[in-house]
Design a protein around this nucleic acid. Structure first.
Lengths: 117, 117
DNA sequence: CCGTATCCTAATCGATACTG
DNA sequence: CAGTATCGATTAGGATACGG
């Protein structure tokens, strides 16, 4: 009965977690507790520095991850998931489970494939 | 321990439900059971025919919605959510709830705003 | 080591006009 | 009524080079 508002809230969540590498980044940080920029880059093959930086900044802005700078030479920067970021866990779990069953279902649809003539 | 694979499954779900108007379309169809193309367009102000068509086709391809054509003059086409599409409901609920609390939290962060000097 | 600056491509979305 | 065709704008993401 108030769909536009609901759509907004659903979409605002989607906007925050959508991004080609954000889920990958979150999985890395959730399992490792804390990682340096270079370690993240190593664990996410294919991502460029520019894009990694951008996605990290976006997650940081929403308080999903935390960025801690150690003023050393050479510089050291460590990333970690915030307490708040961990509240996304149930969503990630559901998305994962649905994606899994969707994959299975798709496989079934492809192999059954009824003749159309 | 198998992050890349998990990321894929999470992202494949996100790919399916991400799209500027898809949530809006789903909300409309979930509450109305069945709607014609023109009715959908009326209920989603701002969307163009071209984009509405495209998003509907994408949802249809994943079996989230169904498209039923009545060969009349003038033509009539009705859209509805499939049984399978309704399995997305828990995800939408979570996304909605998280989005809501995120909005509240953001408001709090903005109003508290500690001085940095 | 951890970025930023430039430049580029591809995809998404939108505006508008036309058709069975 | 329910689309498709065409064109243009915007944005995400990538390649590469340079800087504190």
């Amino acid at each position: 009965m108030n769909q536009p508002e609901e759509r907004c809230l659903v979409n605002s969540t989607l906007d925050i977690i959508s991004g080609k590498w954000k889920m990958m980044i979150l999985f890395q940080l959730m399992s490792e507790s804390t990682l340096r920029f270079s370690e993240l880059k190593k664990r996410i093959p294919g991502i460029t520095q520019r894009v990694l930086t951008k996605q990290l900044r976006e997650l940081e802005q929403e308080d999903i991850i935390e960025r801690r700078i150690y003023p050393e030479i050479p510089p050291r920067v460590e990333y970690s998931v915030t307490e708040y970021g961990r509240t996304l866990q149930p969503i990630l779990t559901l998305l994962h489970e649905w994606g899994e069953s969707h994959l299975i279902r798709k496989g079934q649809r492809d192999s059954v494939e009824p003749e159309s003539t």
